[in-house]
Design a protein around this nucleic acid. Structure first.
Lengths: 213, 213
DNA sequence: TAGATTGTTAATCGATTAACAATC
DNA sequence: TAGATTGTTAATCGATTAACAATC
């Protein structure tokens, strides 16, 4: 499925579709959904929904639409979310702590939510051993070892700007393949490692543009 | 300047350029920067840097480049960041708390950083009066009144998914024009109100696609 | 002046939309 | 069967890149 290069524009809409289907499933009722409705709820045109899905297979039935449960499972499979995905949080300050707790809560609400914070790391020894739910903060020096043990392939970087690149380097060494970066810096990583930036200041600064006044 | 519709693709690069210039200025040395270097540091092609900036005026000198301090000020002006921009945080759970503290710290580090968290709101009366730095959590029912008093035009929504739309509606009533939404829901707002989504789960789910394994 | 780099136009590339035959 | 909606191709739209004259 992955031999043909699928554009990132497409990939970033898949989780959106997945959420719509999950919501529809949870709220019960609908077994079927048309590209029309799926698009409406995801904020995307029906044609684009069909085109996006068609990259991965033929999931619909003409004249009928898409089976909610089936398409949901397919999307989970495509997104590698059909099994538990352990994640590391590096940097357990206020933000890292909040994120760890958020995902713990999210899992309690919905056991099918397969993103799981599985390890916490910090550089500050005063934090070592601090508990967040079931987890204990470990020294960041143990990252590679523990990531290997736990099969961790993604990490959330919630450290200060000054140490973010260092942490990214450690993650790369630990064979982590996806980084969600909250620090306000452009990380440099080798090919094959994906970065998503969650830079709150940048987003607010962008919004500020539209205030005009 | 704003009569010609400038694409969002352009606008979201401006804060990136601004950051590069601020970093360069802080680290001293360079008074001038070429589109080449600016692009390099921002992760954008030099041609695109020039084209983006050209939408707003002629800021460079042929054969020389852009004056760092001058372009920085111009970008701040364009982004409405040349004056303090008060922001509300709605929902002071772990995440809201962390974000409020983050921006307080950011301001202490750099007094020129003009995004300022100026008010905190929550629906839970157990939180009323709780202090975060200089600020006290207020009932969300006071949002409109206080937003008006303080001139707040942007808000960070850090409430549970179930109440996010309600909060967004309140913000709209309070004449807030920009929303940074951390809740995993698609908010519906009238024309003229901008939304930026900071949906951590969605970003991680997108990253998961690239794990292939 | 000679060299460098901007601002801008034309060319290219990629993503979205429109349209419709296939078919459930 | 008739009506509806998919999967897919062609048309459109928009964003990025290439190229270069203008000029510091």
């Amino acid at each position: 499925m992955r031999w043909k290069k699928i554009s990132d524009a497409v990939v970033r809409r898949l989780p959106l579709y997945l959420r719509v289907l999950e919501d529809a499933h949870r709220d019960g009722g609908k077994d079927l959904m048309s590209s029309q409705e799926l698009g409406q709820r995801a904020g995307v045109s029906p044609a684009l929904v069909r085109k996006d899905l068609a990259w991965f297979g033929e999931f619909g039935k003409q004249g009928v639409g898409y089976e909610v449960v089936f398409l949901k499972q397919e999307l989970r499979r495509i997104l590698n979310l059909d099994r538990v995905l352990p994640i590391a949080v590096v940097g357990v300050g206020k933000l890292g702590h909040a994120l760890a707790r958020y995902f713990q809560g999210r899992f309690e609400d919905d056991p099918d939510f397969n993103l799981r914070v599985a390890a916490l790391f910090d550089a500050d020894e005063k934090k070592f051993g601090v508990r967040v739910g079931e987890l204990e903060v470990r020294p960041v020096s143990e990252l590679a070892e523990r990531a290997r043990e736990l099969g961790i392939k993604m990490a959330i970087i919630a450290v200060p700007a000054e140490s973010a690149q260092q942490v990214a380097d450690l993650c790369v060494k630990a064979d982590i393949r996806g980084l969600l970066n909250f620090a306000p810096v452009k990380l440099v990583v080798p090919e094959g490692v994906r970065i998503a930036n969650a830079d709150v200041s940048l987003e607010l600064q962008r919004l500020a543009y539209y205030l005009e006044g």
